[in-house]
Each structure stands twice: as structure tokens, then as C-alpha cells.
Amino acid sequence: MSVLVENLTVRYGDLVAVDNVSFEAPTGSVTVILGPNGAGKTSTIEVCEGFRTGQGHVRVLGLDPAKQHRELTNRMGVMLQGGGVYPSARVKDVIRHFCALHGKGANATELIHLVGLGARSKSTWRRLSGGEQQRLSLALALAAKPEIIFLDEPTSGVDIDGRDVIRDIILGLSQEGTTVLLASHDMAEAEKVATHAVFFREGKILASGDMKSLASARKRLRFTSTPGLVTAELAVAVKSPITVISEGLYEVASEPTPQLMTRISQWLADNQHPLLGVDMGTENLEETYRRFTRSPQ
């Protein structure tokens, strides 16, 4: 297990930013940390990076990130949410600098080309676009040849081509056995690379696990019928809660089975409502995120 977080609490004065959370990130996994702004994602990641301390038990690559920070820096890469480079620094200079500091033989020229900045190697940080700055940040994190890499919003402000580059790099790292911990708001991108997910809200973890187990809990059935159905009666008939998604669109929070379909069809027929459409499947990550972050805790 590359990351082990047990009963972590982080306080800023009276504010409890992270409230007794626990999760794990297996070696070689891509664990995506999701949640609204202020949910505690960055604080948790900063504790794992060793930049912040909290109460609880945290181990990264078997090391205490606060007490063994220097040892950890030899084995981890960090991509910050923004900034981190002096505005007048040139791309090739800053990548060379970080490769030299880590001293693990990462080749600066290869890294520049890996993140697609070959044509911009003489540009200064301030002259790069937002997406190019993100790719440079990723290159700096890779200079460590890391066993674990922390990525905070890696695709924020990045165009489609840049996203492809970053996604390929993340998937490549995972295949080589590097553990990736990724905080993101970009659900579509996260879904493409994640093997595990952790959902944060108001400093607590609402759900966590591998994508398959989370997906099995994300099965649902939606159907379209007359607007304004008496959902309370329908819920009793189908023995599952019913949610109105939008006008005439309903969701049954239950695994779609022939028996469930039969009960719904029967109730609609008995009450003389049409069945206009049916959608059975699995929530995408964004739908799951919305369900977790909007539902009462």
C-alpha cells in the first residue's frame, strides 16, 4: 500500500478542515480525490506530501511524511495546483534545475518533449499559456522519477491536446507501477484514468474504494413518463425510493432487474400512465459525485 491514511484530522484554528478521515491508495493505482472546494482534498494531500501536519496516522511509501520528509522527497513527485515557478525562469532551465536537484538521471530534454513543450523550451514561465504551465509543472514532478506522484488539478485550464498528453503520462506512470494520487474537479478526465476514488465533503470522506466496487453501487434505472407522478405510491409499489430527476424523468435507486421493471410497468399501467422511455445503466463519475456531495450526510 503506497498511501495509508488513518483517522486523519487537520485543524486551522477552530476550523476542522479534515475530520477523522481514512483511506488507502494501493501501489500502482491512480486514486482520484474528488469533492467540492473546501472539502479537505488539498489539506489531505499536503499532509501526505509532508507540507502540513495533522492528527492521525499517515504513511506514504511506508514513511512518515512529516518526520521523514527528506527521504520522501527522493521518491515522490509533486505537481502543485498552480504556480511554483519563478515567472522569469525559462522552461529548459527550470526542468534542468529540478532534474539536477533530484539527481536521479531524469533527462531534461526528454521530459520537455514528453510533456509537449519542445517548441517552447526557451520561453519563460510567464509567457506560457495556462495549459503549458500545467504541463511544465507535470514535467517538474516527473524529474524525481517518482514512486508516487501527487497531482493537484493537473488538467485545469488545459486544452484537449494537452489533456491527451497528461492522460497518457498518468496511464504510463500507473503501468510502470508508480502510484498516482490525483485531486481533480474534472470528472470526465478523472474517470478515464482512475482505478480508485475517494469522495470528500466538508472534511469527511463520503465513500472510497476501487472504481469497480463503486460502480456496482452506482447502478440505477431511469424511466420517462407523465410529469407529476405520485412517487410516494410508486415507491411503495416498487419497494424502492423514487427520485424526480427532471420533469417526467424518474430514477429508481435500485439495481435494474426484470422484476423491478415489471412492478414499474404494472403500476404505470394500473394508473393509466404511459412508459415513454427506459434507461438502465451505471452512473458516470460525475453523477455519483453529485449524488454523494448533494445528499445529506
Binding site: 522527497t73 515522490m76 509533486v78 504556480g83 511554483g84 517538474l140 524525481a144
Partner: peptide, 17 residues
């Protein structure tokens, strides 16, 4: 200013003491 640009934080993630 290096602190506000997060330059120091990034250096803190390298083996530089």
C-alpha cells in the same frame, strides 16, 4: 515573492534542505 509564487513549496518537494 518566491513564497507567494509557490516556488519555495515546489523546492520543498525536492531533496534540497
Amino acid at each position: 515573492f518566491e513564497r507567494s509564487y509557490l516556488v519555495l513549496k515546489r523546492l520543498g518537494a525536492t531533496p534540497l534542505t
